[in-house]
């Protein structure tokens, strides 16, 4: 029979996994992104006549681990109502039995794309603060993201930031299934058991890379945020977990010592040495931007003088100018 050209093969592969929303309010129109656990589609909500995004599990019905994981992700999102976290509208099962949830359709660029457009330090730190905020909010509610990386951060047209993909998030107050194999995205391997690895190389702390699932808490996200900050400051991928972050940053020009110290503390190999949560990291960034002392960097007198000189540079220059003028006037008069 029938010769099926390559574009038709591609189309058939796509529609073979197309979710069945027959008899529901949703009409799927396009695949937006595909991960190991689920695929995100653009869709129309026929009742409210608006565009939404729907994440559907990459499985046929009956795959309990994936279904449980999808439900957990939906519950995590429902629990985290924050402007920096995509709101969830609905969740359920398709008529052919696959778990799904419906969320706001987010339009913007990933942080990876955004970093191609600017290297302004103040602007970058402003974005980084806004990345920390929803993560800190999640930490306060006992939730750890576990797969923070530039690809999972969206930056909108007006600088608004959304932390995406909570598919491997861990709710610290309840047992839940660990994620299963991620064939196409971030996860390293199957993470169903202690001793297995999940997360994305470079952005996961040593304890996560060793598969010590029980040891993973908010400080794992702090490490990932530090790695994101490293990428934002250098334009390079995050270094391996054993790297001397402070030294690597020190080789770059224009990265202040105190900022290097913040990044290095966030990425400390030992979780005990990191910030206890994203809120504390964000607070240090705020202090840095305001020219105040930061927790991560104990100042010497000289450092303090240099910092104050930077903060009050304009005032100091004005006073100096005034003094010079007085001296000149005195000399001329004398």
């Amino acid at each position: 029979m029938t010769y099926l050209p390559d574009p038709t093969l591609r189309r058939l592969r796509e529609v073979a996994n197309w979710p069945d929303f027959s008899g529901t309010r949703y009409t799927v129109t396009e695949e937006i992104a595909r991960g190991g656990m689920g695929t995100v589609y653009r869709a129309t909500d026929g009742v409210l006549d608006r565009e939404v995004a729907i994440k559907v599990s990459n499985t046929q019905s009956g795959h309990k681990e994936l279904d449980d994981r999808m439900r957990t992700e939906a519950r995590v999102l429902a629990r985290l109502e924050h402007p920096g976290i995509v709101p969830i509208h609905d969740a359920g099962r398709t008529p052919d039995g696959r778990a799904y949830y419906v969320m706001k359709r987010v339009q913007g660029r990933t942080l990876v794309e955004y970093l191609q457009t600017t290297d302004d330090l103040n602007e970058l730190l402003g974005i980084f603060e806004r990345i920390c905020e929803p993560v800190a909010f999640a930490h306060d509610r006992g939730c750890v993201h576990r797969d923070l990386k530039p690809e999972n951060i969206m930056v909108g047209a007006f600088g608004e930031v959304l932390v995406m993909d909570w598919g491997v998030a861990k709710l610290l107050d309840e047992p839940h299934p660990e994620p299963v194999d991620d064939g196409g995205g971030g996860l390293e391997t199957d993470g169903t058991r202690p001793g297995t690895v999940m997360g994305t190389r470079g952005y996961m702390p040593p304890e996560q890379a060793r598969g010590q699932i029980d040891a993973i808490d908010q400080r794992a996200d702090v490490y990932a945020l530090g790695a994101i900050l490293f990428t934002m400051l250098t334009g390079s991928s995050a270094p391996p977990a054993a790297a001397d972050v402070s030294d690597l940053l020190g080789r770059r020009r224009g990265i202040p010592k105190r900022l290097r110290a913040i990044c290095a503390r966030a990425m400390a190999p030992d979780a005990e040495d990191r910030y206890p949560g994203a809120g504390r990291l964000a607070a240090d960034i705020v202090r840095f931007r305001a020219g105040e002392p930061v927790d991560a960097y104990p100042e010497t007198l000289l450092d303090r003088a240099a910092r104050l000189a930077t903060v009050y540079r304009t005032a100091i220059l004005l006073v100096l100018a005034y003094l010079i003028m007085r001296v000149v006037v005195a000399l001329l008069a004398g």
Binding site: R13, A16, N17, T39, S57, N58, T59, H63, L66, G183
Partner: peptide
């Protein structure tokens, strides 16, 4: 099945 369709089957 995973490679061709992106589907997890049991």
């Amino acid at each position: 099945a995973r490679e061709i369709f992106g589907i997890e089957v049991r």
